[in-house]
Amino acid sequence: MIGEIIDWFTNSANWQGEDGVPTRVLQHLGYVLLSLVIATVIAVPIGLYVGHTGRGGVLLVGSGNVIRALPTLGLVTFLFLLFTDSDIAAIIGLVVLAIPPILAGTYAGLQAVDRSVVDAAEGMGMRGGQRLWQIEVPIALPIVLGGVRNAVLQLVATAAVAAYVGLGGLGRYLLDGLAILDYGEVAAGAILTALLAIVLDLVLATVQRALVPRGVRLAEAGAKKEVSA
């Protein structure tokens, strides 16, 4: 088994052309980033609105759970039959699945902001927008970005599944390998997909660390210390 995997990775044919690793990785990354951007543009404003005003929270959580329960493969095959185009079907499916984690993260992030802090901001005369952008969003950032990280993991996984309806990307190795029982190719696809997910998650973790204000990180660390003490 390990021999087959090494053979596959060391075969220079697998690193070139339309079916080569660089192309497949970039394709996969492209689907993930495109759907992430679309999902973020849709989900963050809705999450901010609901979290800031407190209106529609129950509806948001409920519909988020329903979408979470949607089977990826069912959604993608359904959309493919509807649009008869694998790119459109897959991107729509990916966007739909990436929205709940981002929405939930944004909403939960704003909800988690200490009420007394929001109260103080209001009491000192901040207007709604000032409160949202100067206070609530910076403090909510860790949880919002946590939602984005979840969405990215989900997208990498789902993009592999979406290869079933003819999408490119790393899922091709998994499915094409399965079709011809080439286990080296299957395992290589699995390893590459997992690696991509892990690398993206690490990158986002670094971004998260860079974006979260120092005071918020200190407060988090303090809270953790109190719990473990």
């Binding site: 200490d114 007394s116 109260d119 120092r214 005071g215 200190l218």
Partner: peptide, 13 residues
């Protein structure tokens, strides 16, 4: 305006 727990903004010095 001063409140219980102060309500300081954690992300600001």
């Amino acid at each position: 305006y001063v409140i219980q727990h102060a309500g300081l903004f954690p992300h600001r010095t």
